[in-house]
Design a protein around this nucleic acid. Structure first.
Length: 557
RNA sequence: UACCCCAUGGUGUAAUGGUAACACUACAGAUUUUGAUUCUGUCAUUCCAGGUUCGAGUCCUGGUGGGGUAACCA
């Protein structure tokens, strides 16, 4: 890595490499398979995989599956999918903490033998009482001074299944008076007669996070064990286990960074799970969710997400990033890559009164002005078109550059037309807008060089396809939905208009749109076909992000 | 009220004792067959008080403010 100060972790590694130039950087991304990955995980993924890449090292994907009550292979599969989709390749095979259970057990025996761990018979409630609290020291368990032999015997019988859930635990013997609660004889194993998604019923004792994690890292030769801030207080324990054990292969360095917070969304697994299970959203991949699969279904490109993760930086400061930055990354990417098409979301008929009945012309349109290689396509033009209801006004100020009686407007790639009026129904609702066209302006050109201020999009009524359009807005109305200090739950802050479904008219070239292809409906927004629901019989499009709209902004003033 | 961590424009980050900078946002203008894009410009920053130093955003001390920690979760 050449540039310094990419982030503080990279800086740390860089300075280590000065004295140990041959050190191979080994990182890991260690999710628990108990939920779907979200954009906060993407930050961690990009950090760990990115560090390995820039220092020519390796990054493992390891499932920290030490709690069979919460984990499932469904999550394992989705996580692998998401990491790959984000564009990363893990080193070697996927790893599982559960593959290391036997080794961990042996190390626990080593600790017991050293007199550094003991089997405790206290109940959960008693253990909690004995632990003391933030300002008061804990007290030692009456079982703390059992003999090594007795502990060895009891621990073997725990493994053999002789005891019920909660009857006994294995604890490290450290310091019940430590000001760091994590050091007050932390639990290493609990009894759980529970089927594990990989080991089945082989085990009925399962290691706790603090005991297991450093061992997993050591087994994999991890050099830098990067985790989030809330594990800062766990580092002394992480180090204690690794220092106390003599037979561990190495001692990785734990480094903490601040997790990502994003405005107007929630990032906690618990809350995301609740949104899904209580059906406040449709599923884990609901396009309104900050899950990787949700963003993907919404149409956010993986490169945009990676770009975002790079831009937000890595620090120990607990911050909240504005959603505007993510949207900026998405728009910047999509502006370069999305194919331009025309679609009308709120259609009203435009009749070109002096255009021949029954005639259809094929007009050439540019697929992506940002990328000439994408070429052009032909779009049908005829006497009756659909245009956006908002693109006509009976009366409007000089600043309104669209259709109003007497004003000229360009139909994109079509003709220059002059608005002549409109038809209304009994309720005063406009049913048709009328105009005449200038045959000299085919393609939207003005041979006489006259300037046309407004250009609007359209689709030929006879050729248009119907499509369901799903418009998404932020899922929450509050910037920090998780802040429930005002007495309202995050569920009370769900935006009732986060999803709006309408029927639109779109150009025929979209008939075979694939979910992976990004489109810009010109003047409106970026869209993609929905990966689950869109078929050739029934097209469904998701709005990925709107185009910026300075007109709407000035309107509001 | 114990321990740990953190503090730079509105937001996110950079500056590794030597001219406080970049991006996003907002605003203004130019260009434009997307009121998009692009381009230009404007506003705005070191939590406070001491100390060390020729020189402090950076080091030290004390304060203030924020976050974390008392699961047989990770």
């Amino acid at each position: 890595m050449s540039e310094s100060s990419v982030n503080f972790v990279a800086g740390l590694i860089e300075s280590e490499l000065v004295s140990k130039p041959n050190k191979i950087v080994q990182t890991r991304f260690p999710p628990e398979p108990n939920g779907y990955l979200h954009i906060g995980h993407a930050k961690s993924i990009c950090l760990n995989f990115g560090l390995a890449k820039s220092f020519d090292g390796h990054c493992n994907l390891r499932f920290d599956d030490t709690n069979p009550t919460k984990e499932d292979t469904e999550y394992v599969d989705s996580i692998m999918d998401d990491v790959r989709w984000l564009g990363w390749q893990w080193h070697g095979e996927v790893r599982f903490a559960s593959d290391y259970f036997e080794q961990m057990y042996n190390w626990a025996v080593e600790l017991i033998t050293k007199g550094k761990a003991y089997v405790d018979d206290l109940t959960g409630e008693e253990i909690s009482e004995y632990r003391g609290n933030l300002t008061q020291a804990g007290k030692e368990s009456p079982y703390r001074d059992r003999s090594v032999d007795e502990n060895l015997d009891l621990f073997a019988r725990m493994r053999a299944g002789e005891f019920k859930n909660g009857e006994k635990v294995l604890r490290a013997k450290i310091d019940m008076a430590s000001p760091n609660m994590n050091l007050r004889d932390p639990l290493m194993y609990r009894i759980l007669h529970e089927k594990h998604h990989r080991t089945g019923s082989t085990w009925c004792i399962y290691p706790m996070y603090d005991w297991a994690h450093g061992l997993e890292d050591a087994i994999e030769g991890v050099t830098h064990s990067i985790c989030t801030l809330e594990f800062e207080n766990h580092r002394p324990l992480y180090d204690w286990f690794l220092d106390t054990l003599e037979s561990v292969p190495c001692h990785p360095q734990q480094i903490e960074f601040a997790r990502l917070n994003l405005g107007y969304t929630v990032m906690s697994k618990r809350k995301l799970l609740q949104l899904v299970t209580e059906h406040h959203v449709d599923n884990w991949n609901d396009p309104r969710l900050p899950t990787i699969s949700g963003l993907r279904r919404r149409g956010y490109p993986a490169t945009a997400i990676r770009d975002f993760c790079e831009r937000i930086g890595v620090t120990k400061y607990n911050s909240t990033t504005e959603i505007a930055l993510l949207e900026h990354c998405v728009r910047e990417n999509l502006n370069k890559s999305a194919l331009r098409v025309m679609g009308v979301l709120d259609p009203v008929k435009l009749v070109v009164t002096n255009y021949p009945d029954g005639l259809t012309e094929e007009l050439e349109a540019i697929n992506n002005p940002e990328n000439p290689d994408d070429g052009t396509r032909l779009i049908p033009f005829s006497k009756e078109l659909w245009i956006e209801r908002d693109d006509f006004r009976e009366e409007a100020s000089r600043k309104y550059h669209r259709l109003k009686p007497g004003q000229e407007v360009r139909l994109r790639y079509g003709y220059i037309v002059t608005c002549t009026g409109c038809l209304k129904d009994d309720d005063g609702i406009i049913t048709e807008v009328h105009c005449t066209y200038d045959p000299e302006t085919k393609g939207g050109h003005t041979p006489d060089g006259r300037r046309i201020k407004g250009t609007i999009h359209w689709v030929s009524a006879a050729h248009a396809l119907d499509a369901e359009i799903r418009l998404y807005d932020s899922l929450f109305t509050d910037e920090d939905p998780a802040d429930e200090s005002d007495g309202r739950s995050f569920l009370d802050k769900i935006n009732p208009e986060s999803k709006t479904i309408i029927m639109g008219k779109i150009e025929p070239s979209l008939a075979s749109a694939q979910a992976e292809t990004a489109y810009q409906f010109e003047r409106l927004a970026y869209f993609c076909a929905d990966s689950e629901d869109s078929t050739s019989e029934k097209l469904v499009f998701n709005r990925t992000a709107t185009l910026r709209d300075s007109w709407a902004k000035t309107q509001k003033k």
